[in-house]
C-alpha cells in the first residue's frame, strides 16, 4: 500500500515536472537516472526483506521447535529444522493441559470478544462525550482518564480483586457484597475490570475530534440526535480508529495472563494463556510442547490481524499511535 502510494506520487511528480524540466537530457543521464532508481529500489527491497526476515524468524523458530523432540529442542548449537518432525506434539499439546486446549480457546474467545465489545461501547461513548460535548470539567476529567494509564497493572490487582469479589448480589453476595464469592471465578470477573480503557477513549476522542464540526451542524439541521450523529456519521468516518481499538483490545485480552490467573480458580473457565503455562514452570519447561501450544494459540490472533491489517495500519498512521 505504502509503496503503491510512493510510486503514484513519483509518477505524478515526473508528469508535472516534465514540461518545465531541463530541455533535454542525454541518453547517458537517463541511463544513470534509471540505474539510480533501480539501485535505490534494490536497497529498499533489500531492507524490507531483511526486516521481514527479522520479524518472521521468531515465528519460524516457534514452528520449527514445535516439531522437534524434547532432546532436539534442547540441542546446542540448535538445529534449524527438525530432523524428524513430531506432528504428534500438536496433539499432545492440545490434550496436555487439564481442560484441553479446546476449552481454553472457547474461554479466551468469550473473554476477548465480549471484553472488546464492551470496551468499544464504553470507549466510543466516553470519547464522544469528551470530543463533542461541552460540560464542566471536561478537560480535567479527560486528564484524569489519561492519568489512569500511568497506574501500573500490578497496583490495580488488589483493588480489582476486592471489587469483583464484593460486587453486591452476585455469586451469593448480599447487598453489602459479603457472604459469597461475587464475580470471582466467572467470565464476568475476568472481563469487567478492563472494559473501560483510557487508551481506547484517548484514541477514539482524537479520531472524533478530527472530523470537522460542519458535519454535526449539517445533520443537526435535519433534526438528528447525538446518537444518530455518532452511529451514522462519526463511527463510519473513523472506522480505522475503531478497528485499531478492536484489534488492540482483542489481542490484549487474548494475551492476558496475570489477571485471569488471579481472578479464576477453575480450569474450566481459564483462557489459553494459562493453558500454555502447563508446559512451563519454576522447575523447567517442555519447550517442544510449549512451542506447539504457542503456535496453536497464535493462529487466531494472526488470522484476525490479517483481516483487519489494512484498517489497522490506517488507524495507526492517521491518529499518530505508536506501537
Amino acid at each position: 500500500m505504502a509503496l503503491h502510494t510512493i510510486e503514484n506520487k513519483t509518477a505524478e511528480t515526473t508528469r508535472t515536472r516534465s514540461p518545465v524540466g531541463p530541455p533535454k537530457k542525454s541518453a547517458r543521464a537517463h541511463a544513470a537516472q534509471r540505474w539510480r532508481r533501480k539501485a535505490s529500489r534494490v536497497v529498499l527491497y533489500g531492507a524490507l526483506i531483511a526486516g521481514a526476515v527479522v520479524m518472521l524468524f521468531p515465528f519460524f523458530w516457534m514452528i520449527s521447535s514445535s516439531l522437534k523432540t524434547f532432546q532436539e529442542v534442547n540441542l546446542s548449537p540448535p538445529t534449524m529444522l527438525p530432523s524428524d518432525p513430531q506432528w504428534s506434539n500438536y496433539a499432545q499439546a492440545w490434550e496436555g493441559p487439564p481442560s484441553g486446549f479446546g476449552r481454553y480457546f472457547l474461554n479466551s474467545l468469550i473473554v476477548a470478544v465480549l471484553g472488546t465489545a464492551l470496551q468499544l461501547v464504553t470507549g466510543i461513548t466516553a470519547a464522544y462525550a469528551f470530543a463533542r460535548m461541552k460540560f464542566r470539567f471536561n478537560n480535567l476529567l479527560f486528564l484524569v482518564v489519561l492519568a489512569t494509564m500511568m497506574i501500573p497493572f500490578e497496583a490495580r490487582i488488589v483493588p480489582n480483586y476486592v471489587l469483583i469479589r464484593q460486587i453486591p448480589l452476585t455469586g451469593g453476595n448480599d447487598l453489602l457484597g459479603e457472604g459469597g464469592s461475587g464475580l470471582y471465578d466467572t467470565y464476568a470477573g475476568m472481563i469487567l475490570p478492563g472494559v473501560a480503557g483510557a487508551f481506547a477513549i484517548f484514541l477514539l476522542r482524537q479520531a472524533f475530534m478530527a472530523v470537522p464540526r460542519d458535519y454535526w451542524d449539517a445533520i443537526r439541521m435535519d433534526g438528528a440526535s447525538h446518537w444518530t450523529f455518532l452511529w451514522r456519521v462519526l463511527i463510519p468516518m473513523t472506522m480505522p480508529a475503531v478497528l485499531t481499538v478492536v484489534l488492540f483490545g482483542f489481542i490484549g485480552r487474548w494475551n492476558e495472563l496475570l489477571w485471569p490467573l488471579i481472578a479464576t480458580q477453575s480450569e474450566s473457565i481459564r483462557p489459553v494463556q494459562l493453558g500454555l503455562m502447563a508446559f512451563s514452570g519454576d522447575e523447567g519447561s517442555l519447550y517442544h510442547l510449549l512451542m506447539a501450544a504457542t503456535t496453536l494459540v497464535a493462529v487466531p490472533g494472526i488470522i484476525f490481524f490479517l483481516f483487519v491489517q489494512r484498517r489497522f495500519v490506517e488507524g495507526l498512521t492517521a491518529f499518530g499511535v505508536k506501537g
Binding site: P159, V162, L163, R165, Q166, I167, P168, L175, L176, G177, E178
Partner: peptide, 12 residues
C-alpha cells in the same frame, strides 16, 4: 456508594 462501602469493608 455500595461499592465504596464494600470495598472498604475488607474480606472475611
Amino acid at each position: 456508594g455500595t461499592l465504596l462501602v464494600t470495598s472498604c469493608s475488607g474480606g472475611d
